[in-house]
Computed example of a mutant assay.
Amino acid sequence: MNNATSRHPSRTFSVSEFMDFGERYGIDYRFPMLLQKPELPHASPVLQGEVEEMTLPCGMCVTHSDVQVLQPYETTSRHSSPLYMLVVLEGCVRLTLNGQDHVLRSGMAFSSRLSEHQTMRARHPADCKLRTLSLGLYPDGAWRTGMLESLIREWETCQTPTLIWQVPGFLLSGLQYAQKCAPGSVPRQLMLEGLILQLFGHGLSVCQAERGQRLAASGEQQRLEMIRRLLEQAPENDYTLNELAQRAAMSPSSLRGKFRAVYGCSVFDYLRDCRLERARGFLLEGYSVQQAAWMSGYQHATNFSTAFRRRYGFPPGDVLKLC
């Protein structure tokens, strides 16, 4: 079993290096700047940061990126994978699959099957920080026996070609902790393998629940999405379950159960994550911890600091230091 790890320390990645990545992983890259200025050399920088590639003993191919995007670029997948997952730990990724656009923000995961008939396109604007985990199983990989093969079969029965879901906080915290271990070390690989299997397991449970929810009326689905967007767009407001249930024309217990079934987390776990992501943006803009907490819906900075550390793995006061 191959468990080799390849880590590129913090450095700048050029257009020509991206072309090498593309040949290795079956990805087409497009650089709008080169189209506008063909005279730019292929040594032009695209990313700055760290990229780590590894194949875990279970057969899962993992790429961890912690980078700053220096110039915009787009990707189009050409490889096949019976199950692919992208986890956004920080930043925002815009994807297109089968003509449908998707936006992934911090703490969200995207799962799909990739093939020549189902290609994925991603767009990355300049001047943004991006930290992601890219997880893939490839047709000739070593996963064809054991748990992952069972996972593939279960996923196929859900008949859900694309799934976007919120990653639970405990898994995000675990991933943060695992990244602190020495690259290539056995403890780190064991932790990552366990966490990644949990990621796929949680995604599968969301997928199965979503399949059941397809039987619900489309009007009900729209009302749930209305609640989700309300929480995302105005997380600083105070909400009660009864108030949200009235807006969704459901009983509180129905809203609680159906929201979790569709989005993979409770109403107020989702609200907490939206508030913390809003607060992180304020901190990056230079606001104090107290100001960011208040503007994001927290009445007490202590409660905010505790929730922020649990979500991101470091205190809110360290946000600018880690950028």
Score class of each variant (00 low, 15 high):
Leu276Ala: 06
Glu277Pro: 01
Pro72His: 05
Ala142Ser: 15
Glu193Ser: 08
Met60Thr: 10
Leu56Pro: 02
Met191Ala: 13
Thr63Arg: 15
Leu97Ser: 08
Leu95Trp: 01
Asn98Thr: 11
Glu243His: 09
Gln100Lys: 14
Leu255Cys: 04
Tyr25Lys: 10
Gln100Trp: 05
Ser16Glu: 14
Ile27Val: 15
Met226Asn: 08
Ser254Tyr: 08
Cys128Glu: 15
Glu23Cys: 04
Arg275Gly: 03
Gln176Asp: 13
Leu192Tyr: 06
Val319Cys: 12
Val289Lys: 04
Cys323Asp: 08
His300Asp: 15
Met120Val: 09
Pro252Leu: 05
Leu197Gln: 06
Gly264Cys: 01
Met60Leu: 15
Asp101Met: 08
Leu276Glu: 07
Val46Glu: 00
Arg188Tyr: 04
Leu231Ser: 00
Ala216Arg: 15
Val88Leu: 04
Ala293Ile: 04
Ser16Leu: 11
Val319Ile: 08
Phe110Tyr: 14
Pro41Ala: 03
His8Leu: 12
Val186His: 11
Tyr177Ala: 14
Leu114Thr: 01
Gly194Leu: 10
Gln208Tyr: 06
Gln233Lys: 14
His300Gln: 14
Gln189Gly: 00
Arg144Lys: 15
Leu172Arg: 14
Thr145Leu: 12
Asp101Phe: 05
Met226Val: 05
Glu193Cys: 03
Leu163His: 01
Phe308His: 01
Ser10Val: 14
